[in-house]
Write a protein that binds this DNA or RNA. Structure first.
Length: 274
DNA sequence: CGTCCCACCTGATTGC
DNA sequence: TGCAATCAGGTGGGAC
């Protein structure tokens, strides 16, 4: 489900609702693969902690905690990391609202609300991290043009596959890779190393533009994505190519083609993208 | 190390 | 209508 704009929307929404709240108790489902850290460690770190803030790094939601009064002032308190996978949701609800199916973690706040992690497909992951989490790659919204161009040097993989590689840029997923390539006029199968510097700069600008616009619209809701309040996003209404195979290109009218690149469904305009 | 491909899951949609 | 096949916004590990 969620890429950078969706994760940012969720993180900001949860932050606004629960920053400063104390976690009274924690429940976890016991589904082993959901938990990258032992459930006992997650429960220990979170129980009784005050939520200092919630932010996004790449596609990961990072919940920071206020140090306990008795803590060593030099240690960074552990952070709680939430990766939504394909179908994960992080919801803030009143405790009386029934738990949705596939709920895997519940943080009960002292004010009677709950932060709930719900994930039908169970590709999402929860963990605690002992330092300030930085993520595996560079932030697409702030990377310098020269550093961006450098990421693709010598890579024989398709440019689209490189955009999806989280250890290069983190946060870009299937929708925004396709949308950025469409807006930059670059075919997804082009070898990354063969995309010219001028094209790469067009790509970087297109990517920043598309991500920022999607954040403004609360992300893309293709099937089931919703924010912390259960509200869908609207960027899907501005998709140029994603999930539009066979439909006319909004620029030239040529039917959008759908192919597979790096094992992912990939959409492009054969006329506008070269 | 870089790259490719599949497995990991459930649910919605498509096709016979 | 019913059931099987296919597809989905992501990652991580193994093979080469």
């Amino acid at each position: 489900m969620p890429e950078l704009p969706e994760v940012e929307t969720v993180a900001n929404g949860v932050d606004a609702r629960v920053r400063g709240q104390r976690i009274a108790s924690v429940w976890t489902s016991g589904k082993p693969q959901t938990f990258k850290s032992p459930e006992s460690e997650i429960e220990e770190v979170l129980t009784g902690a005050v939520i200092a803030g919630v932010r996004r790094v790449g596609k990961t939601i990072v919940m920071t905690l206020t140090p306990r009064a008795d803590a060593d002032p030099d240690t960074i308190p552990a952070e709680f990391l939430i990766h939504l996978g394909m179908t994960g949701r992080l919801l803030v609800s009143q405790a009386e609202v029934p738990l949705p199916p596939h709920t895997h973690a519940v943080l009960s706040l002292v004010d009677g609300r709950e932060v709930r992690f719900v994930d039908p497909r169970r590709f999402g992951r929860l963990s605690v991290h002992r330092e300030a989490y930085a993520g595996p790659g560079a932030e697409p919204l702030t990377i310098a043009p020269s550093d961006f161009a450098m990421l693709f040097r010598g890579r024989r993989t398709p440019i689209k596959a490189a955009l999806l590689n989280q250890s290069l840029l983190h946060g870009v997923g299937n929708i925004y890779a396709d949308e950025a390539l469409a807006r930059a006029g670059i075919r997804p199968r082009r070898q990354a190393a063969r995309v010219t510097r001028v094209e790469l700069e067009r790509l970087r600008v297109a990517l920043v533009e598309v991500l920022k616009r999607a954040i403004e619209l609360g992300g893309s809701s293709v099937s089931d994505y919703v924010d912390a309040e259960g509200i869908a996003g609207f960027f899907q209404l501005e998709h140029r190519v994603y999930a539009r195979g066979g439909q006319p290109c909004r620029i030239c009218g040529t039917p959008i083609r759908k192919i597979v690149v790096g094992g992912r469904g990939t959409h492009f305009c054969p006329q506008c993208q070269r």
